[in-house]
């Protein structure tokens, strides 16, 4: 490795590592004295009922968003690939809209649209917020799943399954879904990451999610906020690691099959 490569590598690593180390050192300072080193801030976070409550809300919201999104988008994208390929560019365009429209504009619009909806929907994170998050996750879901569907021969697999007597649902569950598994996992973990970190919509619609809790702690208690930041960073990394472990062994097989065609 050349000297310049080593320099760039060190600079790149420093860019990522220094803030983490600084945050870690900051998180070890006592909230009372401001001196190093104590793990009390981590203890404070872990024993804080608000932390677990908000994590639970955000995590369940993420799961709900993932389930709803997969139920909507997997059959839709499958059908588009199979029967309506001309619609694919239209859906791809629609999927870009959540990227283009700022979250603050989206939340104001959604609050207007849903203001006359039933109380159980409008006033609950499981209703309004999950609906908003499904829209927010649409691009990540679509582009991940679309790539997954494009890597397999949807037509041939479907027709082979049908000729053997399988119905649409059996074909989708037993044949198609297992072969887009890594794409569905990628889409799911991206959605998890988005929902766990989404602030604007939750804040403006007054729901107490994990990012709102982080913000609240950040405004009031500096050192525990650093501990909280690192913990949320750890949660995100754990999710990504899970994706890597689960997706790697399936992805290798898909690649070989696609290449053989």
């Amino acid at each position: 490795m050349s000297l310049s490569a080593v320099v760039w590598l060190v600079l790149g690593a420093a860019y990522f590592v220094i803030p983490l180390v600084a945050t870690f050192l900051f998180s070890l300072k006592s909230n009372q004295t401001g001196k190093c080193c104590t793990a009390a801030n981590y203890g404070w976070v872990i024993h804080n009922g608000g932390f677990w409550h908000s994590v639970k809300i955000s995590f369940l919201l993420a799961l709900e968003t993932i389930v709803i999104s997969l139920l909507i988008f997997v059959p839709t994208i499958y059908w588009v690939h199979l029967k309506l390929p001309r619609l694919r560019p239209v859906i791809a365009f629609l999927a870009l809209i959540p990227f283009v429209v700022p979250p603050i504009v989206m939340v104001v619009g959604l609050l207007q649209v849903f203001k006359s909806s039933p109380h159980w929907f409008y006033a609950q994170p499981w209703g309004f917020l999950s609906a908003a998050y499904v829209i927010l996750a649409f691009p990540y879901m679509f582009f991940s799943l679309d790539a997954g569907f494009r890597a397999i021969d949807v037509h041939t697999l479907t027709e082979a399954s049908q000729s053997l007597g399988a119905r649409w649902t059996t074909t989708l569950v037993k044949v198609i879904l297992p072969n887009i598994r890594s794409a569905a996992l990628a889409a799911s973990f991206l959605t998890l990451a988005i929902v766990m970190g989404e602030f604007t919509i939750a804040n403006l619609s007054a729901f107490h999610t994990f990012p709102i809790f982080i913000q609240l702690v950040n405004e009031t208690q500096g050192f525990p906020a650093a501990a909280l930041t690192l913990l949320s960073f750890g949660i995100t990394w754990a999710a990504m690691l899970a994706l890597l472990v689960v997706g790697r062994k399936r992805g290798a097989r898909s690649a070989v099959v696609a290449g053989a065609r």
Binding site: T156, N179, R261
Partner: peptide
Amino acid sequence: MVFQAYSLFPN
């Protein structure tokens, strides 16, 4: 039916 493309279920 046997297809032109390899049609075995990869999973």
